[in-house]
Design a binder for these strands. Structure first.
Lengths: 233, 233
DNA sequence: CGGACCCTACGGGATTCCCCGTATAGCAGT
DNA sequence: ACTGCTATACGGGGAATCCCGTAGGGTCCG
């Protein structure tokens, strides 16, 4: 999974990095970070207002691939309080490293999903006691949720990113065939159903795989489902 | 798409219908409605605190399939203010019908997505002027967002719980292998990765397919993803 | 202790899929 | 008009999968 730094990209009409700062200021937070995951391109892109050294270290040690806050939030609907992760050794490892750079153990990650399988993860931290954190959290949760939606919406809408994260567009025929394959039909079956040659079915399937960046048909089916292009049956 | 009324289903520890009422009370709203779309089962399920006659009419006329508020929000990341829809004739039709039952034109629909392509749509209405609505909206947007997440999370949790009860559970090995297959590995690859024979891999795959009621491996991968047993990659 | 699974492993034979091509025709954009 | 993409179709050859078995060792439970 490659990492794309969005912090220097021009965005239409606003600067998302400074938006992080204003969220921190408004809600009495220390740091904020946005990470967007593209499940197909296998990329993570983002921007933070963490100290530069921590950001560098985080990426260079590949923390974004095993950070339990990101992993859990990327599979969750509701926000994930980092308190839930304290038992996990991976979290403890990353937190020990983070505390060297002044980042607190108190944090929260809000997931936001778009219609194409894209996930935005908005994390904030604040150095304070558990009790203070609990009070603060309930007070600002709505605002964080709104900020997360705003961030992810802007990132996904932005043209410059859409070029980087171009979602594969399968032809109607390719989708149709992939849908039948996902329904358990063989290539021959599909050919009979659609009244075309099984060889032609295989051609469409091949080009579908290629567009999805999949090595095998099962993987292509999985990705297409993950993108909402087809449905399991 | 069939319609499932969840309003009478028992939920663990809380009543979602009364949650709608409390959201209305807290935020000075007239009505609130939750609609969940399941792209796999092709169903819409939901519950509302609209007047019964309106609810009945809405469903009987199939409004849920063409309501522009739902359609737009289901493709959006950010909340959709119904003001944006005033130009659309479909919206005007539905609103004319709604106003017969005391529902205002002033409304908002908040979309929330889960990891499996599921979408929750939380709508609220308030009878007031455009200016009042603008002020109210900015004040309660965060709370609505939080409420929407809470609703959808609860519905999905209980829904997937139901599905897990009804579906056979795959062994850890079977899931592990299916996950690698979904990641584009061949049976031989998986055997090498797990240091077992490729024939053994095939055995697990076979039994996984059988448990999922799938005729082919691509179908099994699709179903496993649809059930949330594995993730696309 | 005897089933009931699960994990492991191997084999033969049939089927299917995948990769490499070639080829025509239509349709859309520039 | 040329270029590019899509849909259609065909074929050979090799690789992979799938289906039918057998079989020993492990765990868990009644």
């Amino acid at each position: 999974m490659s990492v794309i730094d969005l912090s220097n990209l021009p965005f239409p009409g606003n600067n998302l990095r400074s938006f992080l700062d204003s969220v921190c200021e408004e809600h009495e937070l220390d740091f904020a970070a946005y990470a967007g995951m593209d499940p197909i391109a296998q990329t993570i892109h983002g921007f933070v207002n963490y100290p530069d050294e921590w950001q560098t270290r985080y990426v260079s040690e590949g923390f974004q691939h095993r950070d339990p806050a990101l992993l859990l939030a990327s599979r969750s609907i509701a926000p994930v309080d980092w308190q839930r992760l304290r038992g996990e050794s991976t979290f403890q490892d990353i937190f020990r490293a983070a505390s060297d750079h002044g980042i607190s153990e108190q944090g929260l990650t809000v997931p936001v999903r778009g219609p194409y399988g894209d996930v935005g993860l908005f994390s904030v931290t604040r150095n304070c006691s558990d009790r203070e954190w609990g009070l603060l959290k309930s007070k600002i949760l709505g605002g964080l949720q709104t900020a997360a939606v705003h961030l992810h919406d802007n990132v996904i809408q932005s043209h410059s990113l859409n070029r980087k994260l171009n979602h594969p567009s399968l032809s109607a025929r390719e989708l149709e065939i992939l849908q039948w394959i996902a329904a358990g039909k063989s290539q021959q079956d599909v050919g009979d159903i659609l009244s075309i040659s099984n060889r032609t079915v295989e051609v469409h399937l091949r080009s579908g795989r290629s567009k999805l960046g999949a090595l095998t048909t099962p993987q292509a089916v999985g990705r297409a489902i993950g993108l909402g292009l087809i449905h399991p049956s």
